[in-house]
């Protein structure tokens, strides 16, 4: 997977930025939650790009958000 950097991201238009972040997030989430990855990625894309960029550099914060998203999704589907 090619690395995504803050400068690459901020040089793209806003909608494109979410697309770039989604393409980066999806395979990571698929590794842990194959069936829910598309929806979890969709939920995480509602987070501010600046925070998503932080998560890009800090997997611990990424997985913490993924756990939150999974819990919300399961509660919603229950």
């Amino acid at each position: 997977q090619e690395p995504l950097t803050a400068s690459m991201l901020t040089s793209a238009p806003p909608q494109e930025q979410k697309q770039m972040l989604g393409k980066w997030l999806l395979p990571l989430i698929q590794a842990m939650h194959p069936a829910l990855a598309g929806k979890i990625t969709g939920m995480l894309l509602e987070i501010d790009n600046s925070e998503l960029l932080h998560m890009l550099e800090c997997p611990q914060s990424l997985w913490s958000k993924v756990d939150e998203a999974v819990a919300m999704l399961q509660a919603h589907q229950a």
């Binding site: 979410k18 989604g22 997030l25 999806l26 929806k39 990625t41 969709g42 894309l45 509602e46 919603h76």
Partner: peptide
């Protein structure tokens, strides 16, 4: 909008529209 389709699902290659259509 309807909550039935929440959350929107991300597909690579499909422009992301987020929650704006819900």
């Amino acid at each position: 909008g309807s909550s039935i389709n929440w959350p929107p699902e991300f597909h690579p290659g499909v422009p992301w529209k987020g929650l704006q259509n819900i």
